[in-house]
Write a protein that binds this DNA or RNA. Structure first.
Lengths: 114, 114
DNA sequence: CCTTCATTTGAACAGTTGTTCAAATATTAA
DNA sequence: TTAATATTTGAACAACTGTTCAAATGAAGG
């Protein structure tokens, strides 16, 4: 990996900072979580489940979207292990499964409220 | 706004949760910040500036992208007031301008590292 | 078995996104 | 003024995203 060829203004500062940046892998993980929360529908799902678990069609009502649209988004959040689900007969209940994401959400909630 | 028509499984739970969800406006603001941090290039810019201020072309080297690509992303982050800049002759230095975003980033950094 | 209901799935679509390229600005120095 | 350098801008493009719709699945009850 060619870190700094010859075009850089302040090679020393650049080198210093590059040392502090996490590995590509970790940057990717961070970006993935932020991306999951960057869609208003998905964010609303997570905010709803912050209160209590809900089934798919209730989440659809809360988010004012079709069951199908919600199901697609739930799959994304489940794949990222942000949500988990449990079946009770025909109904599937979703709830939060990542304490860290909960903290992130609460912190950003505090911000927009103050 | 028709909150709950007749198709909802558990009207009481739905009503309870709807009360806890922030206003659309605030959900939108939260999503906007998460979206800003959801692109690996933009996230890397913010991570770099967590260390110290940098000029555009140094950021380009750090992120391994063209000056132009970085400039486009800097505009997005500046518009959201996540970054500020100062001019020193021909060179424009960018730095962080939102303590809350810094906290969010640090919290998510802690997470991927542990 | 057949029906109903909750959820999932896949294809299709429009809308958005990030990067590239070339051209435009803006500042400095000769 | 002219040339050189740092940054910005706008158009264009492929790649990606979220929603919709229709059809498929899976569980419970008759």
């Amino acid at each position: 990996m060619d870190i700094c060829g010859e075009k850089c203004i302040n090679e020393k500062k650049v080198m210093e900072t590059i040392k502090t940046i996490p590995r590509q892998e970790n940057v990717g993980q961070m970006a993935e979580i932020f991306k999951a929360l960057s869609d208003p529908t998905r964010l609303k799902i997570v905010l709803a489940l912050l209160n209590q678990e809900h089934c798919v069609c209730d989440i659809a009502v809360i988010c004012n979207q079709t069951d199908s649209a919600i199901s697609h988004q739930l799959r994304i959040l489940r794949t990222l292990k942000i949500l988990k689900n449990r079946r009770e007969g025909k109904i599937i209940y979703y709830s939060l499964d990542d304490d860290h994401v909960v903290s992130l959400i609460k912190m950003s909630l505090d911000h927009v409220r103050h």
